[in-house]
Amino acid sequence: MTASDSGLRAAPVVSANGDEVSVRVGAVEVLRARFADEAIPARECRAPYLHPIRTLAGGVVTGHRPYDHRWHKGLTMAVPYVAGSNFWGGPSYVDGRGYVDLGDVGRIATNSFEVLPDGTVAAELAWIGADGAPVLAERRTFAVRSVDPEAGCWTLEFRSELRTFGAGPVAFKSPTVLGRDRAGYCGFFWRGPRSFTGGRVLAANGLEGAEALMGERARWLAYIGEFDERDGFATLVFVPDGAAPEWFVRSEDYPGVNPSLAFRQPRVLAAGERLAVGYRMVIADGAWSRGRIGELLDRGATPPVTA
């Protein structure tokens, strides 16, 4: 089935049921969000996540709780170290010791969420440290935009605004900040399905391949993967707002992409300071070329995220 023959001419339809939100385009559920999942073990960092995410033709482009990293949850916000707590899940990196279970995993709780009239989903979240004290308040929004059945793509707009609690500064740190080389993951993180392992990675700076792009800066980065079970490929294009970030990207160990908030240096917020970040993620059927990606972005098919 292709996007053109599956009746995908309708606008996105957003519905909420309990702790979940579903977004459908025609017959295809292109996105499902989960705001509470108590079945997830606490050591994996209970947090809201988006999974599954699908192309217009129905191909799933996210992986959830894979056996190699149970704490990877589709698409989410995750930080390995904030104010002494692990909001990534799993063991924590300790320089000289490697990854150790420290009992320091926090959780991201949902205080409330709503579907706004324009289809945006808005949530008020609390980052609760391992000691039970609040560390960050977050307002998170996401929406399905720019549905283009002819091109076979749609755009996820995702925005997060984080604010500190308490009287002191808060530092975001990746394992690379803490001493591990080439492990700068921190923030908005996509985990792909296992069949996408070994996928093609290319970026706006002209480099290609996960190894070449690890820790490099680029305005956008694309990941192309092939499906199991169904025929075909999908192309995911990640476009952060603002300056080009340093990218954490893997393809051989597992498919994962993260425009890092703190790859080599900590990101420090003063007391009461806010950190606002926005991302566009184009989800497309097919293996797109660098030229086709550039044309899509140049013609403004995915406008910048707005507050």
Score class of each variant (00 low, 15 high):
residue 128 I to H: 00
residue 128 I to V: 04
residue 128 I to C: 00
residue 129 G to S: 05
residue 129 G to T: 00
residue 129 G to F: 05
residue 130 A to H: 14
residue 130 A to D: 08
residue 131 D to I: 15
residue 131 D to A: 15
residue 132 G to L: 02
residue 134 P to V: 04
residue 137 A to C: 00
residue 138 E to G: 01
residue 138 E to H: 08
residue 139 R to C: 00
residue 140 R to Y: 09
residue 141 T to P: 01
residue 142 F to S: 00
residue 142 F to H: 04
residue 144 V to A: 02
residue 145 R to G: 05
residue 145 R to V: 12
residue 146 S to A: 10
residue 146 S to C: 08
residue 146 S to L: 00
residue 147 V to R: 03
residue 147 V to Y: 00
residue 148 D to S: 02
residue 150 E to F: 07
residue 150 E to S: 02
residue 151 A to Y: 07
residue 153 C to V: 10
residue 155 T to E: 07
residue 155 T to H: 04
residue 155 T to I: 04
residue 156 L to V: 09
residue 156 L to D: 09
residue 156 L to F: 07
residue 157 E to V: 05
residue 157 E to I: 02
residue 158 F to C: 13
residue 159 R to F: 00
residue 160 S to L: 04
residue 161 E to Q: 12
residue 162 L to G: 02
residue 163 R to S: 13
residue 164 T to S: 08
residue 164 T to M: 06
residue 166 G to M: 07
residue 166 G to N: 03
residue 166 G to F: 09
residue 167 A to K: 11
residue 167 A to W: 05
residue 167 A to C: 08
residue 168 G to A: 15
residue 168 G to T: 14
residue 168 G to Y: 12
residue 168 G to K: 13
residue 170 V to F: 05
residue 170 V to H: 03
residue 170 V to M: 05
residue 171 A to H: 03
residue 173 K to G: 11
residue 175 P to A: 15
residue 176 T to Y: 14
residue 177 V to A: 06
residue 177 V to Y: 06
residue 178 L to K: 12
residue 178 L to M: 14
residue 178 L to C: 11
residue 179 G to Y: 12
residue 180 R to A: 11
residue 180 R to Y: 08
residue 181 D to I: 15
residue 181 D to K: 13
residue 183 A to N: 14
